[in-house]
Design a binder for these strands. Structure first.
Lengths: 153, 153
DNA sequence: CTTAATGCAAATGATTTGCAAATTA
DNA sequence: TAATTTGCAAATCATTTGCATTAAG
């Protein structure tokens, strides 16, 4: 059992949800696929294996995958919406004075990066964001002047 | 008349489209607003001034604004779609295959970065975002096999 | 057994479109 | 005057939901 599957199972357990055969199948196809799928497309693939599964279930399962942080949906300009596994995005705050490095977690940030990549026809694998500035402590010592904007753009 | 308005007028002229009072009003409200609006929201604002304007016209005008490169629509996880003026910051998309480097523009990204920094007591001076992936062209060549996961995680 | 999940069909809600009337160049 | 745009209402289309039934823990 791979990591993703474990995460999903943990999520289900934590929320008193059940691991049905449908959910298992949808998850498997979702993570094993090499390209981004539309709900319909994934539904068709899933149907090839278990013809009984409904489109509603695909949609419902996707919601859980999203909540578990395993999937995100990406909207395209052509009107389609595709679901993709979420991948490793790392963001850091770096203090220019003391060099402190603080990892930040901001799903919205990740979402927007995805969105930006998508808008350029890009398929994003991972991203690095480094935010340079002054940390709280160094800020106190520095406050008198305002080192702003000079470095921007 | 500001730059945006001029661009829009040029776009209209270039495409033999007409500058109607509705389009003018929608453009004005769109560019003057301080926040991202839903089609509905913008429609409501516009209606406050010219109650005759229809929602269809708002949608149709948006398409033109997008084509003119003045607006882009951003889909949110909450299901709303908001239209935002395209201007502002630069981060980069980097294609891992061909090395292409594309500057991306997403004011929201910057906004969120500011926000993240603030939450940690950080004062943000500048940021560098690099999004790694495959560009549209390389994506096509790669599709047959699955370039996935290797770089993932 | 108890609770949650499923499939189906019907409902929703955002966006689009056909068309006759109105407006722009 | 010719061509485009508008508003309206109806049509789409992806996604969601209600409900009776089935399956998981």
């Amino acid at each position: 059992m791979n990591g993703t599957t474990r995460i999903f199972q943990d999520y289900l357990k934590a929320n008193r949800l059940k691991l049905t055969s449908q959910r298992k199948l949808i998850l498997d196809i979702f993570i094993s696929g090499s390209q981004l799928l539309t709900a319909e497309e994934l539904f068709r693939q899933v149907s090839g294996i278990d013809p009984g599964i409904s489109l509603s279930t695909v949609y419902r399962t996707f919601k859980h995958l999203q909540q578990a942080g395993l999937a995100r949906c990406v909207h395209y300009g052509d009107g389609t919406t595709r679901y993709e596994p979420s991948d490793g995005q790392k963001s850091y705050l770096v203090c220019e004075k003391c060099g402190k490095k603080i990892p930040i977690i901001n799903p919205y940030l990740e979402c927007l990066q995805q969105e930006s990549a998508r808008q350029e026809g890009f398929r994003m694998f991972r991203s690095r964001t480094t935010i340079y500035g002054l940390c709280h402590e160094c800020l106190k010592e520095h406050m008198p002047c305002q080192p702003q904007d000079a470095t921007q753009h």
